[in-house]
């Protein structure tokens, strides 16, 4: 019962702050709202017994990615575009796309019978030891590839920002 209450709190806050990201006009407020949303997702990871992933979520998303976003907002001086008109005229296509995806989700969730498929969830947490062993043995090659990708992205970002200055 306590867990359900926590889940409802986390998910309601997450959905509310996600709506704030999309609906607020000032990009700084959007970024702060996204920080709140990412914290709630970390809480959901805790409820799913994945403490390592929750910590990684807080470190990387809230710590690195959002600081990068706020840094870019401050650096670029977003004042001039602070007041954009929301839901500006773009025809019916965006509405149709959103409605189509919503209908698809409802059909899959209510027609799929997922709870009947997986009635009992695991209640014990995956410890970091097992996690690390699988990551560094079975998934060693994808891990190396993703490290290389991170390096390439870092070098690429530095090169692009430097070239624009010269």
């Amino acid at each position: 019962m306590f867990e359900e209450l926590l889940f409802i709190f986390f998910s309601a806050t997450a959905i509310g702050s996600a709506l704030g990201v999309v609906l607020m006009r000032n990009p700084v407020y959007c970024a702060v709202s996204l920080v709140v949303c990412l914290f709630q997702v970390a809480g959901l990871f805790m409820l799913l017994r994945s403490p390592f992933l929750a910590v990684v979520q807080v470190f990387i998303y809230v710590g690195a990615v959002m600081v990068l976003f706020l840094f870019a907002i401050m650096l670029l001086d977003m004042k001039q575009i602070r007041y954009e008109r929301l839901f500006s005229a773009r025809g019916w296509v965006p509405y149709a796309v959103v409605a189509g995806i919503a209908i698809e989700f409802v059909a899959v969730i209510y027609g799929g019978g997922m709870d009947a498929l997986m009635k009992v969830g695991a209640t014990k947490a995956v410890d970091v030891k097992t996690f690390g062993r699988v990551l560094f043995t079975e998934y060693l090659f994808p891990f190396e590839v993703i490290s290389l990708l991170l390096l390439v992205a870092m070098v690429g970002a530095i090169v692009m920002v430097k070239r624009s200055r010269g």
């Binding site: 867990e3 359900e4 889940f7 998910s11 997450a14 959905i15 996600a18 709506l19 990201v21 999309v22 990009p27 959007c30 970024a31 949303c37 959901l44 409820l47 799913l48 976003f69 870019a72 907002i73 670029l76 977003m78 575009i81 954009e84 929301l86 839901f87 500006s88 773009r90 965006p94 796309v97 959103v98 995806i101 919503a102 989700f105 969730i109 997922m114 709870d115 997986m118 009992v120 969830g121 209640t123």
Partner: peptide, 29 residues
């Protein structure tokens, strides 16, 4: 234990909000 479909519903709602943000907003950030 919270049922699985609750998590799927929250994930879907967040995804829909993200899609709406990509399609409706003009600010790149």
């Amino acid at each position: 234990m919270v049922p699985l479909s609750w998590y799927i519903i929250v994930g879907s709602v967040l995804f829909l909000i993200g899609v709406a943000g990509v399609l409706f907003r003009r600010n790149i950030i």
